Amino acid sequence: MNSLRIEPAVTWGTRRQFINLPAQIHARDSRWVPSLRCEEKRLLGFVPGHPLPKEKPVQAWLAFRGKQPVGRIAASCCLAPQNPSNQAVGYFGFFECFNDPEAARLLVQTAAQWVGQHGLEYLRGPMSPSINYSVGVLTNGFDRQPSFQIPYNPNYYEELLVHAGLRSVQELYALEIFRDHMSRNVDRLERVGNHFSGRHSVRFRQLNRKNRHSDLQLFLSIAQQSLMSHWGFVPLSEREQKRLAIDMSWLVVPELLQFAEVNGQVVAAALALPDYADRIREIDGKLFPTGFFRLLMGKQRIKNFRVVATNILPNFKRWGLAPALIGRISRIALSMGAEKLEFSWIAQSNPLSFGTIENGGAQRSKTLKVYEAACAELLAYTGNGTTVL
């Protein structure tokens, strides 16, 4: 076997290899959905428009055997000063690798060394590049179709990461419900929600088409406030919020972004998106020159939806707003001909949300895992015949 080496993805050629490698790894898997290439390049800083602040750098590497790339990884320093538990944590993400344990181990070590050089004690991931984007490794649910923005990978990835010295620190779940069960459960969800929210004169409304961008930024603001105590929380910068609002404006269906207001104040929001996974596979993750139009054209014909978030401000979490919002989203999706709703993801450490969705008739369909280890511990693993440039 050829000797193994790591190279930073800093030239045009290595960055191109970094972006193209997943297609080679998943070449025989017809289920696989590529990332949107322009978005991945932007998050990695390969092209202008990087949404992360300068104090949150991202560095990418490739593993080679001879001239052939066999794996890739990136590391980032997304500090969260508001949450002391995250102060010493750096992240790895964009992980892809052939079934080559030595290459995976060296990639993880390289990320750990870089994170340690930035004064951080632990390496956590995959988070590409933080918890606000693509998170986790799929470990269960390989028989299910991949979903929009939910990781999908070969079933050996878990073994590669454990072999590299990482340990699971959090499980993330996807739950799904099909049309027949939705029809039977939506009335009950709305009835439970309205029983509580009706006492407080709660008003529901959808995204305002005329104020689309301000409503999307409001949704992101509610999400940030509601998640501050959530495991792994990393705040979005103002620049990230603006970038996400722009990106979401093309994808969102106004009726499927629902707000709950109390005395004119928005206190909760829920968002479902059409599952664009099949469309992204058809355009091979390329928005240009025609992919963008093919992705969005006739999106009303998409019959599977992903419920991305149900966020409630802390003082209103006991008001029954979650079942009320989920019931409204479900009813609207049914009116659009929905065949399936997927709720993803819900953290293992959030049993209240998991229970609400499960009580609404959804069943667990996928499990993803996030891994972590001390950088010093990871670097104690040694490899032979390697060169780190």
Rank of each mutant, 00 (worst) to 15 (best):
L4A: 04
L4E: 04
A9M: 03
T11M: 06
T14G: 03
I19V: 14
L21P: 02
P22T: 02
Q24N: 11
R31L: 13
S35H: 14
E39I: 11
F46V: 07
P51C: 02
K54I: 10
K56Q: 15
P57W: 06
V58L: 08
V58Q: 07
Q59N: 07
A60Q: 03
A63I: 07
A63M: 07
K67P: 03
G71C: 04
R72H: 01
R72Q: 08
R72N: 00
I73Y: 04
I73W: 06
S85I: 06
Q87K: 12
F92G: 01
F94G: 00
E96D: 15
D100C: 11
E102R: 12
E102W: 02
R105I: 07
L107F: 03
Q109W: 08
A112T: 01
Q113R: 14
G116K: 13
E121Q: 14
Y122L: 09
R124C: 01
P126S: 13
S128D: 08
S128K: 04
S130M: 07
G136P: 05
T139K: 02
N140G: 10
G141W: 03
G141A: 07
G141L: 03
D143V: 13
R144T: 12
F148Q: 02
Y157D: 02
E158L: 10
E158Q: 15
V162P: 00
G165H: 06
L166D: 05
L166H: 01
V169I: 15
V169K: 08
Y173T: 05
R179F: 01
S183T: 15
L189A: 14
E190V: 10
V192A: 08
V192M: 11
F196G: 00
G198F: 09
G198K: 07
S201D: 14
V202D: 00
V202H: 00
F204M: 13
L207M: 13
L207K: 04
L207W: 08
N211C: 03
D215I: 09
Q217S: 11
L218V: 01
Q224R: 09
Q225N: 15
M228I: 14
K242D: 10
S249R: 06
S249C: 04
L257Q: 05
A260C: 11
V262Y: 12
A268D: 03
A268R: 00
A269P: 03
L271Y: 02
L271F: 06
A272V: 09
R281F: 01
I283P: 09
F288Q: 06
T290C: 09
K303R: 15
N304W: 05
T310R: 03
R318F: 11
R318D: 14
R318H: 14
P323S: 10
G327S: 05
S335Q: 13
K340A: 13
W345Q: 07
I346D: 04
P351N: 04
G355P: 00
N359M: 08
N359G: 10
G360I: 11
A362D: 05
A362K: 03
R364L: 09
K366L: 02
V370R: 07
Y371R: 07
A374K: 14
C375H: 02
G383D: 12
G385L: 13
V388W: 14
